[in-house]
Each structure stands twice: as structure tokens, then as C-alpha cells.
Amino acid sequence: MTTTHAIEVEGLTKRFGEVTAVDGVTFAVESGEVFGFMGHNGAGKTTTLRMLLGLTPLTSGTARVLGREVGRETIEIRRTAGYLPAHYTLPPDMTPRQFLHYVGAMFGLPRDVVAARTEALLRRFDLVHAADRALRGFSTGMTQKVGLAQALLNEPRVLLLDEPTSGLDPLGRHELLELLRELARDKGVTVVFSSHILSDVEALCRRVAVLHRARLVAFGDVDHLKAQHGARTMDDLYLALVRKEAA
């Protein structure tokens, strides 16, 4: 593995008692790419992302994010990473503006920087009209926009998104995919896009890792993988991989 990798994972394993959630997974994500992380629910995608941020300890294996070792330099990793979990709630008594200021303070960013970034993100996600309304009554789509805004507030170099398009309407989804392309292209942000919506992964990612029942079953260039498995679409590829594993 070379230093151009933003994320390097080797033999990553996570066990919860008798259950193996992630089993010896090895892959690497290049700097500035939008990397697809595919697999059905329970395949181990979320656990892998959580391990990368030190939210759950590794059972074995190693992982590095931007050259920093997971488990030993967790706080430094979090300082340079943005994260949107698949399942979360926003503080119901806060407004989006208050919440973004709170998150900015957690990163220790200067007040004026937080204020400027907050306003820019509120505009970017079309939340200005709702910026001072309590988050309690927000729709799923609006909640997801605030979730994405908080993930971008620290201008992360690595962005870990777990099912980010769920809850978004078609327009919101299109805008998000466009934003992620722009972040990778213009700002060199490394994006790990975890999803089971294969069309989103196909639209966004050149390279993918596919998890199935806690194990990595494919990793590499999408076109190469498709050719290798005789698949025309991402759906075909995924089904071919899963069926091969089941056989």
C-alpha cells in the first residue's frame, strides 16, 4: 500500500461475542476518490465505517486513515473526517443553526469561521428558511440535509457517508451526488459512499468494495469487476457476486 491511499484497511475483523460482523477485510481507498462501499443490510459496512472512526474497537487487523492509525490516533482522525451515520437523530430542541454552531465548537473552530461555514452550508442545502426552527419537526429529507451539513462543517479531507441518499427525494439525491463529485474533484476530498442503492454507487464511484456476510467478496475498478463477472450493470455484478458466494 502506498501513501497515496487515504484509507488503508488490512485484515480488519470485528466480533460481537459469537457474531462476526466484519471478517478479515482488506482494501484501500485512494486520496480524492469517491469509493463505493456496497453490501446488503448487515453485511458489515456500518461496522467497518464505525471502526475507522474509533466508534467501536477493532477485534483484530489494522486500519489507517490519512496515515493515522485507528485506535491510537482516533481523535486526530475524527478531526479530519466527516461522518454521516445511517441511523441518527438530531437534537430535537436545537435549530439547524444552533446545531451547526455546536458541532463547530466540538471541532474547536473559531467562532467567525463556524458562522461563515454554517451560513454557507445552510444556503447550499437550501435550509435558510428553516435555520431557526427546532429540529423536532423536521422531515426525513430535511433532517438528512442537516446531517450532511454537519458532516461537512469541518471541511473534512475524508468523508464517510453511510446510506446518505436514504430519505432524500430525487432532486435532493441528484444534488447530493453532484456535491460529492464536486468535493472529490475540486477539493480532493476522499469520499466513502456506503449504500445498498446500487444505481447511486454506479453513478458515483469508479472503484468499489463489496461486502457479503461480513467478508469482502470483491474490490476494485467497477468496469473491471463487471467484465470479470460478465455483468452489464451494477445490479448484475452485485447479484453475480452474491450468488457466487451462496453457491
Binding site: 466540538m106 474547536g108 446531517g147 454537519q150
Partner: peptide
């Protein structure tokens, strides 16, 4: 329990 921590725990604060 409500899910706020899944976002906040990923910030640079132990």
C-alpha cells in the same frame, strides 16, 4: 438511546 450520540461521538472529543 435516541441516536444523537451516533453523530456527536464521531467528533474529536473522547
Amino acid at each position: 438511546d435516541v441516536g444523537v450520540l451516533s453523530i456527536l461521538a464521531a467528533k474529536p472529543l473522547s
